[in-house]
């Protein structure tokens, strides 16, 4: 089932609200990079990816690997809104005994493909999935979401070489280019530019796109599907904290939850009616 663009835009707002409520209730967690990834996740889970919440172990499902595990609030909210588990469970984020661990754990929540939280490892796992699926002549595609700061890990570039060397055209990387990490701007901490040139030089089909524009994202994913003989990376230009004015473009909202008052303010901005 593919959702329409207006539906997806509404869902994006709902998911933003979930992120605010979840991190506020948990008293910790990572709102900034969750909010910047909302449209990417919505495009994948509500349109681009082949998957079935009613048949989670379906062999031919597309695979999603969250390499930047700290933004699991956006993943959990997307999964819940897509029918994998009841949205009420989102409020158990980070609590003792919850399936929604502070960083994703596949043994707790079976609809997760991997566990993550240590940056830089996802693209290698995704490559392994892509290679294995191709060996079995299977059609699923593999998607991997990374942060821009995360690209400072050397392993990402090892995986980049793997993807190109093995011509993994069933692999699609997405980088949430929000320009921020914990200690500040990526350009100040350790510069990544020229980023598109780097990926191109590594042999990847490289698409730059507005990461908050669902239509543009979907068309980039379709272009990736059509691209043969090499993997694709989508560099999604985003705003960290997107949708909540006081969080936008502020490094301090990387790993800080909103207080009750801040959450109320944020929810109001997002158009909560109650």
């Amino acid at each position: 089932m593919n959702y329409s663009v207006p539906d997806m835009k509404k869902l994006a707002t709902e998911i933003r609200k979930d992120i605010i409520r979840m991190t506020c209730e948990a008293g910790s967690g990572h709102p900034g990079g969750s909010l910047s990834s909302v449209e990417i996740m919505v495009s994948l889970y509500f349109n681009v990816m082949k998957h079935d919440p009613k048949n989670q172990a379906w062999d031919d499902r597309d695979r999603f690997v969250l390499s930047k595990g700290h933004v699991c609030p956006v993943l959990y909210a997307s999964l819940a809104r897509r029918g994998y588990f009841p949205p009420e469970e989102l409020m158990t984020l980070r609590k003792f005994g919850s399936r929604l661990q502070g960083h994703p754990h596949r043994l707790k929540l079976s609809c997760l493909e991997t566990s993550s939280g240590s940056l830089g490892q996802g693209l290698s796992i995704a490559s392994g999935m892509a290679i294995g699926l191709r060996m079995d002549k299977k059609s699923p595609r593999v998607y991997c979401l990374m942060g821009d700061g995360e690209l400072q890990e050397g392993q990402v570039w090892e995986a980049a070489m793997t993807g190109a060397h093995y011509k993994l055209d069933n692999l699609c990387g997405i980088v949430d280019v929000n320009g921020l990490q914990i200690d500040g701007r990526t350009s100040d901490v350790k510069n990544l530019e020229p980023l598109a040139d780097k990926w191109k030089a590594f042999g990847w089909h490289t698409i730059e796109v507005d990461g908050h524009n669902v239509e543009a994202l979907i068309s980039a994913f379709r272009e990736a599907e059509r691209t043969k003989g090499k993997p694709t990376v989508i560099l999604a230009k985003t705003v960290k904290g997107k949708g909540v004015s006081f969080m936008e473009n502020k490094a301090e909202w990387h790993g800080k939850p909103p207080s009750k008052e801040e959450a109320a303010k944020a929810l109001k901005e997002l158009g909560e009616t109650c």
Binding site: L119, Q152, G154, I182, D183
Partner: peptide, 30 residues
């Protein structure tokens, strides 16, 4: 430090001795 200077408190040194502080980004092996 590797993008965790506040958490590890290396930031306190960085503020006093910026010329002797090296931020390496998210690159622990480096």
């Amino acid at each position: 430090c590797a993008d965790l200077s506040d958490s590890t408190r290396a930031l306190w040194f960085a503020e006093k001795f910026p010329d002797r502080f090296i931020e390496v980004g998210i690159s622990e092996q480096d």
